[in-house]
């Protein structure tokens, strides 16, 4: 696997305050890496260091082998960055805005015009390309932002809070585009967010930042197992007579870790990995499951667990 982003022991101080403290991670080609954490965790500062827009106090960054501090232009040529709350020139049309950006990237006008139509079609703004950006909705602007990073054929795309402040439909469109950029175009994507549920949907791997430190890193499964322990499922059962006798009938099923009676139902906790077998067995013995919850690790839980502990 080709490594596109490599960060090692990044540290950034602001007047004695350590905003980023020893952050290391890497992003492979075509991978979607999510940088998570509450506001003020140091996500944006880390991103700025990757782009050479802030100099690290110490530590090493390599983007496709380039050092962003020393060769910021080379890094910016292959990296599309969509800042949080990005703005466009409101008195220009989408096409004019993109043409301006293409020129800043040294793309010739005739090539750029073709490319612009192509990326606008990708993000679904082709039919409004000649409208002023001032008339665009927030979701359309964000998609225009994605178009603006695609125009330079990037190897890496960095998105800072790409879904903040747009409606669910817009969010879905943006997430879908992010997925397609990674899967179809082979672009590596680094995105930062505090919206866990969305990140969970698209990210291959995540890194959780808290108070300037990367506290956990890996796939959501891995992190979940680390933090929350083994998975456990819960089901609610009914039976003709709910009493201790009925409870005994559940004896001997492998994988059941706990069973008790509550509110006229039987509650059973079990090993998630054997869910199917257990449900079948329970039904065979005459119980009726009214609710079976397999527990997935949600980032929310991981998050809360981490931040409660500090």
């Amino acid at each position: 696997m080709n490594v596109v982003v490599e960060a090692q022991d990044l540290v950034r101080d602001y007047n004695g305050f350590r905003a980023v403290n020893g952050v290391s991670f890497s992003v492979a080609q075509g991978e979607i890496f999510g940088l998570l954490g509450p506001n003020g965790a140091g996500k944006t500062t880390t991103i700025l260091m990757l782009l050479g827009m802030t100099e690290p106090t110490s530590g090493v960054v390599r983007i496709c082998g380039y050092d962003p501090t020393k060769e910021p232009l080379k890094v910016k040529r292959i990296t599309g960055y969509l800042p949080e709350n990005v703005g466009f020139y409101e008195d220009l049309t989408a096409k004019e805005n993109l043409l301006y950006l293409a020129k800043l990237n040294g793309i010739k006008e005739d090539v750029a015009l073709k490319k612009i139509d192509e990326v606008l079609a990708t993000v679904g703004l082709l039919d409004v390309r000649d409208k002023l950006v001032g008339t665009y909705s927030k979701g359309m602007r964000q998609r225009l932002g994605l178009a603006s990073v695609l125009i330079k054929d990037p190897k890496l795309v960095i998105l800072d809070e790409p879904t903040t402040g747009i409606d669910p439909e817009g969010t879905e469109q943006v997430l879908d585009l992010i997925r397609r950029m990674s899967r179809e175009m082979g672009v590596s994507i680094l995105l930062s967010s505090h919206l866990l549920y969305q990140v969970q949907q698209v990210c291959d791997r995540v890194g959780i930042m808290f108070k300037g430190k990367m506290v956990a890193q890996g796939s959501i499964e891995d992190i979940g197992r680390q933090v929350l322990g083994e998975r456990e499922g819960v089901m609610k059962l009914t039976y003709s007579f709910i009493n201790e006798e009925a409870l005994k009938k559940l004896d001997g099923i492998e994988g059941i870790t706990e069973k008790r009676i509550a509110n006229n139902t039987i509650i059973v906790k079990f090993d998630e990995t054997r869910k199917l077998d257990i449900v079948r067995e329970v039904v065979m013995r005459g119980f009726l499951p009214i609710e079976v919850k397999g527990k997935e690790y949600s980032l929310e839980e991981i998050y809360i667990r981490y931040f409660r502990e500090g």
């Binding site: 827009m53 910016k76 960055y81 800042p83 703005g87 466009f88 409101e90 950006l101």
Partner: peptide, 14 residues
């Protein structure tokens, strides 16, 4: 404040 400065700065220009 319009957000265009970070847009331009993320392009390959000095």
């Amino acid at each position: 404040t319009r957000g265009t400065l970070s847009l331009i700065l993320s392009q390959p220009v000095y």
